[in-house]
Amino acid sequence: MNTKSRRFLAVDILLLVGAILPLVACMVLKVLFTPASEGITITGALVYFTIPTPVQPLPITEAQVNSWAVMLTILCLCLYLTHGIAVRPGTKRQLAAEWVVEKCKNMVHNNMGDYFAGFAPFIAAIMTLSGLSSLLSLLGLFPPTSDMNVVAGWAILVFSLITYYKFKAGPIKYLKSFAEPVPFLAPMNIISEAATPVSMAFRHYGNILSGSIISVLIAAALGGLSNLVLGWLPGILGEFPFLRIGIPAVLSLYFDIFSGCLQAFIFATLTMMYVSGGFPQEDYEKRKARREARKREKLLAKTAQAEKA
C-alpha cells in the first residue's frame, strides 16, 4: 500500500511538473530572445527561428511555441484530474473533473440538441485552449490568441466542420441552399458564408490584441506620468516608475481575465451555433430514410433472387 501510494504521489508530482514546465520554458525562451530595448514597444510575435523549406522559409514564432506549451499544460492537467479515477469518487479532483464534464455536456446538449451530443469534448477542448491561451498574458507571455494566424486556423477548422455538416443532406441540397430565397442573391450568400470564419477569427484576435495594446499604452502613460510627478526624487527613486505598480493590474482584471474568458466562451458558443444552425436536420433525416429504404429493397431483391435460385 505504501509503495503504491508513493508511486501515485510521484506520478501526481510528475504530471503537475509537466503542466507547469512548458510555461516556464516559454518564459525562459522569451527572456532569451527578447532584444534589449529602451522603454515600451508594441511588436508582434517574436520569431524564434526559421525552418528553410523548398517553398518559403517557415518561421517558428512565439505564438506557435506558446500554443504548443498550452496544449501540453492542458494535457497534463487533464491527466492529473483523471489520475486515480474510480467508480466511487474518492478524491476531490475527480469531483472537479466530473463537474467540468457534466457542465460541458449540458451546455452542448442545450445549445446543439441530441444529434450533436458527441461534440462536448471538442467544444470543451476549444474553450480551454482559447481561455488558457488568452490567460497566458498574465504570465507576461505573448498570448497566442492575439496572433491572427492561430485564431484563423481555429476558425478554418470550425468552418470545415460547418461545411461538413451542411453537406450531410447531400451536395445538391448544399448548392441549392445558396440560391435561397431567390437565385439572384447567390453572390450575397457566398459572401456571407465566407464571412463566417473571417468574422470569428477577427473577433477573437481583435479583442485580445486590442486589450493588450491598451494595457501597454496605459503602462507607458503611467511611466511618463510618474516621471513627471515624482521625477524630483533623488537618484534612482526619481527614475523608478512608482505609478506603474498595481494600477495596470486593475485593467488587467478586465482585459486579460474577463475578456479572455468571455472570448473563449463566445468562440465556443458561436461554434455550437453555426454548426448546429447550418445542419439541415429534416433533409438529413429524409435522405437517411430514403437511403435505408433503398438498401432494404436491394436486400429484399437479393434474398428473393437467392430463394429463386
Binding site: F202, R203, S210
Partner: peptide, 20 residues
Amino acid sequence: MITGCIIAETTGLYGLVIAI
C-alpha cells in the same frame, strides 16, 4: 442577448482591426 451582442459587435471589430 450575449449572442446577439457578439454578432452586433462584429462590424465594430472590423473597424478596429483595420485601425490596428
